[in-house]
Amino acid sequence: MELAAIFISAVLVQNFVLYYFLGICPFLGVSKKIDSAFSMGLAVTFVMSITAVVSWLINNLILIPFGLDYLQIVSFILVIASLVQLVEMFIRKISPPLYQALGIYLPLITTNCAIMGLALIAALNEYSFVETVIFGFSSGIGFTLAIVLIAGIREQLDLADVPEPLKGAGIALIVAGIMALAFNGFIGMLT
């Protein structure tokens, strides 16, 4: 039951993009097409899940036992950067053209504050290992849901008569705000 609550909360209620407003850069930058948005969402979900695992290990096996909690931010930054570097190396090894095509795509995940926020929130809530992984995974699913939804709306917006000054990021931010208000309606689910 606890795990289900964590899952629903991270996907719908405390969605990283629409509740915390973290990870806005890829949310706006890679949300022009549904296909690209979905693959970006999967990549973020994977990095979030693996970050949750490694940051839990570092926090509970090194930082807390040795009283080094104040190093959380520095160590989590290091962990996230190393992980994305590893993923990049792996992709480069298995498919050089895919690595060439991704370009800024993966570093965009490294500098995504949603990943950092995830590690810090998981540490703050003192989740167990399994809870941390479920939290990481469901936060990624929540991110994917938000980015795919906005990509769908933006594809339709291409056909709409948007006033010139609002075209591009302007209308995307307005849509994101309306989506955040709509997602607020889910708050009653977990009271």
Binding site: D35, S36, F38, S39, L42, A43, T45, F46, S49, I50, V53, I91, I94, S95, L98, A101, L102, V133, F137
Partner: peptide, 17 residues
């Protein structure tokens, strides 16, 4: 590219869970 990314990260995520 999208197909490849979905296969890549989908497989890794499924294995992780």
């Amino acid at each position: 590219y999208n197909q490849a990314l979905i296969l890549l990260f989908g497989t890794l995520l499924t294995a992780l869970l």
